[in-house]
Design a protein around this nucleic acid. Structure first.
Lengths: 245, 245
DNA sequence: CCAAAAGTGTTTTAGTTACACCCATGG
DNA sequence: CCATGGGTGTAACTAAAACACTTTTGG
């Protein structure tokens, strides 16, 4: 049997299949606190609960493309740092039917985050509190505007926990922090992002030197304006690939 | 509409869906070299090529359960360290039809690896050569018994690359190395596993102290036998949870 | 001049590397 | 008693942390 003949006899409908979905963790650091965008579910299951934005993966659509489509449709954002996180496949994670969900996280600068919140009225900002330190994993607490912690729909709380864990783990050897900052930023802003994600105070001189010695930062020569004290230098992230050329 | 009414009207067959599969990277370190188990494909597509063992996910089966089922069915192994790696969802990764594949890697001690190879005649051992250093990612070279590097079916070569990257990354902060060793092992054997995965020579005294200071190792009081030189102490991995209790 | 935060220099500390050496075993 | 790898002590080095200090701005 050659390949063409094989493909003709192959029956793709022979077995019952799970649905495949993507869920997005749209993260930012707003005013020194990690935050995510949530949607309120207007239908069963978990009607009225808060959930991560998501959608089904089209039959002609890659997983990454589905994640970017949801980013565009629900958060009205064209470009963001998007990374696959983990795939959730427990049998009863959705009471309607069998759904396998591929979780992605997107890192968004605070300004774009605020714009998305304005452009998409269905989204609400929730602050994250991470009650565990260091590498240990655990559930995060999710709060809307200083209210009590809320439980997310489905296994979305678990997704958030894994996203924070991944973010903490990648923070100091990858460039994820820069995805949370505007194109030009001060070292103080960079340190604020690190401190928010790690929930720790960092030593200023040590942090400065570590970042500058890494060779990822490029001074723009420009200064921050508006403050009533010494203006800070604005830096730009120098992409590693560019830097090596 | 309440939840029961909603579930009745919901039509799970409304959209065409991808199939969901799992692929397993069955890894070990054999004679100082990373190795994987491959199967030769006896049907289209990629007939005659080597591929990772895998299988479709049942409608009533979780992803993790599917991975363990494939481990039991194809490799005849009951217990192993199994971890989800990454989900591959390019549209044309399989020419037959749309298949989303969740890759898992399983870490297997050399003895169990040899036993699996004997019990499952469909499997062949392939050695891995990792031509990139450190944190940088890239494709690995796969060789059967000293022959030329071969190209795997589908995107399985990419899966191997990501598996090696993950393994290298987790090696010195997690306990993955112990999953590649028998219950009792010498510090030299532990160092050999590290050196094989990292493809580097490590300093012996520094390695010993780092491992012992970590508190994960428990001396058994027993010694290795058979060598014509000073016998080495056998250690046991002390599970972190047990250690903290 | 003062307050506030940017930015720098110096000392201390801790962790890792390198090297030298001693130890225990089979033959 | 010799070869071989197991195991240990010490010095050198490097990277991070802590601290004190100087600099620059608006008011």
């Amino acid at each position: 049997m050659d390949e063409a003949a094989f493909l003709e006899t192959y029956d793709p409908a022979a077995f019952e299949r799970p649905s495949v979905a993507v869920d997005l963790i749209l993260m930012s650091v707003v005013d020194g606190t990690p935050a995510v965008l949530l949607t309120r579910r207007d239908r069963h299951p978990f009607q009225g609960n808060w959930a991560l934005p998501g959608g089904f993966v089209g039959i002609g659509e890659s997983l990454d493309a589905a994640a970017r489509r949801v980013l565009a449709e629900k958060a009205h954002m064209a470009d963001a740092y998007v990374e696959q996180l983990y795939t959730f496949g427990a049998v009863n994670r959705d009471p309607r039917m069998r759904i396998v969900s591929v979780a992605y996280f997107a890192l968004i600068p605070a300004a774009a985050f605020a714009a998305a919140l304005k452009a998409a009225p269905a989204l609400a900002l929730a602050e994250l509190t991470v009650p565990w330190k260091g590498e240990a994993g655990g559930p995060v607490e999710v709060r809307l505007a200083e209210s009590e912690p809320l439980a997310l729909a489905f296994d979305h709380g678990e997704m958030l926990g894994i996203a924070m864990l991944r973010l903490r783990g990648k923070l100091d050897y990858s460039s994820v922090a820069f995805a949370l900052l505007p194109e030009r930023f001060t070292l103080r802003a960079l340190q604020d992002v690190h401190e928010a994600i790690l929930d720790t105070r960092l030593n200023k001189p040590a942090f400065r030197r570590r970042m500058l010695d890494r060779g990822w930062l490029e001074p723009t020569g420009e200064r921050e304006t508006g403050a009533s004290f010494r203006p800070a230098e604005l830096y730009r992230y120098r992409n590693a690939n560019q830097g090596e050329q």
